[in-house]
Design a protein around this nucleic acid. Sequence first.
RNA 1: GGGGGGAUUCCAGAGCGGCCAAAUGGGGCAGACUGUAAAUCUGUUGGUUUUCACCUUCGGAGGUUCGAAUCCUCCUCCCCCCA
Length: 435
Amino acid sequence: MTNFIQELTWRGMLHNVMPGTEDQLNQELTTAYLGIDPTADSLHIGHLVGIMMLKHLQNAGHKPVALLGGATGMIGDPSGKSQERNLLSEQELRYNQEAIRKQLSKFLDFDSDAPNKAILVNNYDWMSTFSFLDFIRDIGKHITVNYMMAKDSVKKRIASEEEGGAEGMSFTEFTYQLVQGYDFLHLYKTHGCKLQLGGSDQWGNITTGTEMIRRMEGGKAYAVTCPLLTKSDGGKFGKTEKGNIWLDAEKTSPYTFYQFWINADDKDAERFIKIFTTFTHEHIAELIAKHAEAPHFRLLQKTLAQELTTLVHGEERFNFAIEASQILFGKGTKETLEKLSDADFNAIFADVPQYQVEKSKFDAGVPVLDLLAVETDMLKSKAEARRLVQGNGLSINQEKYSNVEGLITKDQLLNGKYLLIKNGKKYSVITILES
RNA sequence: GGGGGGAUUCCAGAGCGGCCAAAUGGGGCAGACUGUAAAUCUGUUGGUUUUCACCUUCGGAGGUUCGAAUCCUCCUCCCCCCA
């Protein structure tokens, strides 16, 4: 059995740990929970760090609890300086919960008979029937405002108001830490949960929980946080220009998901592989060494992408993502394109801008420049299109096209339906409409 | 209140009344190189156009002139100095 704290430490996933936590973990099978916002019907990779903490925890023989913040998600955590949230209907909430459970089960063991199998709970179940009066009487009494005010997340919001900056902090948000703290207390009482995991921004909220357990139950509970994940270029982890990378294949195609990991730069890949895989210390050291020998093979990125894409989307989708990548970045030729079925073609180019042109236009052939700038608004003007073609920047169906006066005819259509246009490094697809 | 300087194409910043669609740098976009990276080098960077050429653009409105981003008048907005 591995030592959870040591495991997190070498993986670079340990930010802060409450004294005594390691002893607690060594002493008995410990139940630990992590909160997840159920605001959508899918997790995105920003959630993944937390989930991996649970996974490493489970691998270390302890029992993970994933807590969906059905109740807390309605309030909005002030430490994320997020806007106030919208209320989810219970129906939406349950739907999201089921979808998220499915995704979580790819990472965690929910179904075996093991004593440390994971469970999923939703704080809506115990918070929704808790009356305001009961809450302030039973819970609020035990925590002083002075204590709550001392939290960084609260201080920051109040200070920013005094500077005339933000719009202050609502009472609802102020209460957030009590609600989250109560979750911990509740799980402590009902599941014997003694440890809460979270991002480093959660420390303040977690300690409110341990404080409640101490004051109200005379119990001892612990906290472990991990650093917030950053990218070495300073960008936000898990975000692309197009938004979040979701685990749901409908929201983010497996190809895009795969590409996200492939595109990690070397520095990040090294950190990520420690965080997002369960490979051993030795195996990872070996991978890093191999990568350093031949960085252009990008072994780390490929391994990382393979592990996660396979885990989340399955082997078949992973293979397809590779195939798609080769077509887009490798030596994909016109021949390989022609071999693709419509379904595959659409899947590969699903994330690429689409344009439509009527088929009849091709009867006489369409001048390239018109195709780019008139029939579609791919380029702003014919002058720009001309520059592109003259600059050798245009490919049609993966073949360089440099004839400014050229006509595009029916013969060039892939499967009689598509044109794959490559403008520099950017792809676009023109779909031919039957008319 | 007095005096002075400025507003230029995405940004910064040149620009003798004709040779200015406007130097140069940055950024953008392409090409080469490369690891779907970084750096570097090359080309390009208002529109129509094969070329010639034409059209729209230099804070706004007028004017002088064969001709104005460049001269004059008024207006708007910025900056600096002295009180």
